[in-house]
Design a protein around this nucleic acid. Structure first.
Length: 427
RNA sequence: GGAGAGGUGGCAGAGUGGUCGAAUGCGCGGGUUUGCUAAACCCGUGAGCUCGUAAGGGCUCCGCAGGUUCGAAUCCUGUCCUCUCCGCCA
């Protein structure tokens, strides 16, 4: 969420930002309600003061008659108070709904636009696109998965429905290798590794900006509970400091988390989402940073640099995209995506995403820090970034590793974690 | 799953209806003493919101949400979490 005071003081900028981000939010109504709320709140406090004074005076009453009279007075004041509070509560509820719908402000350098065309490619990876000879037609990962007995979509569908799959044989080792490779790298870079819960409370989902229920939700919720399956470990890692105030000397807090990710992918289908590209469940290693406000832009660059290093190491050609305002979603102040070259699609496809959410998530989560010796607390800044989303990384590695001799070569960087250097046809 | 105990300030831990935003100890900050350090002593020390130029005032917060009452940290209900014992289990 944005700060209420900030919205009041920057109405035009907030409205423009909503337009740029393709988000509908009733900012005018918000301002109207917030001003009303403040006024009513002041009345409530004055009334409370009165009620408190009456209650206190009762203890000192000399006679029972006096006491009864004061009690009656107290009753009347409290009745008035209850009515006022009701108004505040109703105003607060609507205010909160609107406040949640207002997106974060965008970085001034963020490209402005609503369509894919506005996203700006800022750089490319080290690895060139693969050059196969004229007659060789590379297979996509679905075909490779079948040929080498690596991915079983049929059994996945039989067991859990479309969009689920079994990884098999070398693909399993490859998933584990990708995880270990990523985690080891992150540990060296000062991240604390974690394995997070795969479920989280709905309040934590909301705190990080995910909406657990509703028509368009990406989230699976668990019936008769307050829990949902997480769509990313960003949710659980962000929740780590929910309702906490931590000492500034513990900052920055750099965490990475391995989790499964679950997405309903409601309404998403088509050739572009064939195979592993868009699935209901996958594993992911996610990075998450809590830091001081003045550090967040630098950490955003650091997260991007780590992602690039990972995909350079994996010998995956890619481009980095500076996401335009219309594609940022709610919490991000700025977002970079890495899009890997996927021969099967003959196109780039998103494999990572890193966002600087500034204090937007932290305010919802109520995650703050305190500097020793200084008065007051401040909201933290939060950042997240994909280290490796296994399904898409695995897809890329398989498609890019295929050779004309009919084998799939593993990237050098994964060799320490794999008992094979290449995948060869069975039988 | 069954039975019990408990959740209070940075920590430990008092507090069972008004004088409690909360004793005391530790920690932390400042000071006195001291050649320096330590010890001892003294003073101070939660957060959010809000009014005020300031001094200073007001409201809220004792896991969370409700309820009773003129008044709740204290009584009641629900809920979450922690601990102990039993059962079960990877």
């Amino acid at each position: 969420m944005l700060d209420r005071k900030f919205i009041l003081e920057n109405v035009d900028a907030v409205k423009l930002n909503c337009r740029n981000r393709n988000v509908v939010a009733d900012v005018d109504r918000f301002v109207e309600l917030e001003l009303l709320r403040r006024e009513k709140q002041r009345e409530v406090e004055a009334c409370n003061q009165e009620a408190n004074a009456v209650s206190k005076s009762i203890g000192k009453c000399a006679t029972p008659e006096e006491r009864e009279a004061k009690k009656e007075e107290g009753r009347l004041v409290r009745e008035k108070l209850a009515a006022l509070q009701q108004v505040v509560r109703e105003t607060e509820a609507e205010l909160d709904r609107i406040q949640r719908s207002i997106p974060n402000m965008a970085h001034p350098d963020c490209p402005i636009g609503k369509d894919d065309g506005s996203n700006t490619v800022v750089c490319y990876g080290k690895t060139p696109k693969p050059q196969w000879s004229e007659g060789f037609k590379p297979l996509d990962h679905v075909e490779l998965g079948e040929k080498f007995d690596l991915i079983d979509f049929e059994s996945g569908a039989r067991v859990a429905g479309a969009g689920f799959y079994f990884l098999k044989n070398e693909a399993v080792l490859l998933e584990l290798a990708l995880e270990q490779f990523a985690i080891n790298k992150l540990v060296k870079k000062g991240f604390t590794p974690t394995i997070t819960p795969d479920l989280a409370k709905n309040s934590v989902l909301q705190g990080t900006g995910y909406i657990p229920r509703g028509n368009e939700t990406q989230i699976y919720s668990i019936e008769n509970t307050d829990l949902s399956l997480i769509a990313t470990a960003e949710i659980t890692l962000g929740g780590v400091l929910a309702n906490e105030t931590i000492d500034a000397d513990r900052l920055p807090l750099k965490l990475c988390g391995v989790s499964h990710c679950f997405r309903t992918e409601a309404g998403a289908a088509g050739r572009a989402s064939r195979g592993l590209y868009r699935v209901h469940q996958f594993s992911k290693v996610e990075m998450f940073v809590f830091c001081r406000p003045e550090e967040s832009e630098a950490f955003h660059q650091e997260l991007l640099a780590i992602e690039r290093e990972i995909f350079d190491d994996l010998e995956v050609p890619y481009q980095v995209v500076d996401t335009a305002t219309g594609d940022l979603g709610g919490p991000a102040y700025r977002k970079y995506d890495i899009e890997a070259w996927m021969p099967g699609r003959d196109a780039y496809g998103e494999v990572t995403s890193t966002s600087n959410c500034t204090d937007y998530q932290a305010r919802r989560l109520n995650a703050r820090f305190k500097v020793k010796g200084e008065k007051g607390t401040q909201y933290l800044h939060t950042l997240n970034g994909t280290a490796v989303a296994i399904s898409r990384a695995l897809l890329s590695v398989l498609e890019l590793g295929q050779r004309e001799d009919g084998t799939i070569v593993m990237p050098e960087a994964l060799r320490p974690y794999l008992p094979f250097e290449r995948i060869v046809p069975k039988n």
